[in-house]
Computed example of a mutant assay.
Amino acid sequence: MATVGELLRHWRHRRQLSQLDLALAADVSARHVSLVETGKSQPSAEMVLRLAEQLDVPLRERNALLLAAGFAPRYAERPLGSTALAAARAAVERVLRAHEPYPALAFDRHWNIVLTNRAVDPFLAGVAPELLRPPMNLLRLGLDPRGLAALVVNHADVRSVFRSRVRRQLAAAPDARLSALYQELLAAGETGEAVESDVVIPMIIRIDGVELWMFSTITTFGTPLDLTLDDLAVESYYPADADTAKYFERG
């Protein structure tokens, strides 16, 4: 099992920071960072969290750092439907409802959809039942011909956007399940292309005999203290032209 120093060094290298860079950001000495990384100094739980904050370590991995340092995990993981997260779930549901008549959905770090608004329902009407079984996965829906892929006019563009976003996730924090999903759905035909900006590439869907041009934005919780909330993202779709806006506004 890796020591806390080895894990911190791993994250520092991943973030491409020197020991001095990290020390300045965390307001500690570079020597102290070096001693922690080499195991010559045992950091307190507060120091582990301070360094992890500056390294932008996800909460799940901060728990791993604390365990490696001999401390109890700081961040709980509770289902979104639990009583403890009732207020957070209600807030997400309000965000989704407020975005109607346009589609919006919430998904976790593995792209499993946990909540949607009513505007999403018509797009799922023709989806194969096996893709709708929990956990319903946004990547599968978007890329599988039995899902939404058959409706997407610019499928290659959308696939590139998905590929770029998952790559960034994996670059920020390794994840075995997400890596497996990437290999299954996105690795084939990989060319190394980079998408400059997701927001300027519309998703064009042909439904009911019309083409809908949409773009999306991602919203995340700013300062979550729960792993479920840290993993959660809300994707909101907007009309990219007047005809698409009219389609949704007519219901």
Rank of each mutant, 00 (worst) to 15 (best):
I201A: 06
I204P: 07
R94G: 05
L66I: 06
D108E: 04
L178R: 11
H99Q: 09
G142Q: 14
T83N: 10
R118C: 04
R50L: 15
L105E: 06
V28H: 03
E193C: 01
Y102F: 15
L124V: 01
E77P: 05
R9T: 15
L55M: 05
E100K: 01
A173I: 00
D175I: 09
L170F: 03
P202C: 03
V92S: 01
L55W: 02
L65S: 09
R62H: 11
P73Y: 05
E184T: 15
A91K: 14
N63L: 11
A240W: 01
A25M: 09
E184V: 07
Y238F: 15
L141S: 11
L132C: 02
L186F: 00
L20T: 13
G142P: 03
D144C: 06
L51V: 07
L181F: 01
R146S: 08
I201P: 01
E100N: 01
A149R: 15
E6F: 00
A104M: 12
D241T: 09
H13A: 13
M47H: 00
P134I: 11
L67R: 14
P58Y: 01
E196T: 14
A45V: 09
G251Q: 00
R74I: 00
E196P: 01
D56T: 08
D121C: 06
H32T: 10
E184L: 11
L24I: 10
G5K: 00
T223Y: 13
P101G: 08
L105I: 00
A98M: 05
Y75W: 13
T3Y: 03
A30R: 12
V234C: 06
D241R: 07
S29I: 03
D198L: 13
L225M: 07
D230R: 04
T38M: 03
V4M: 08
L65F: 07
P134M: 05
L65K: 13
G192K: 12
A45M: 09
A87K: 12
L132M: 14
R14Q: 13
S179R: 14
L115V: 02
R15M: 04
N63Q: 00
L131F: 13
L139N: 03
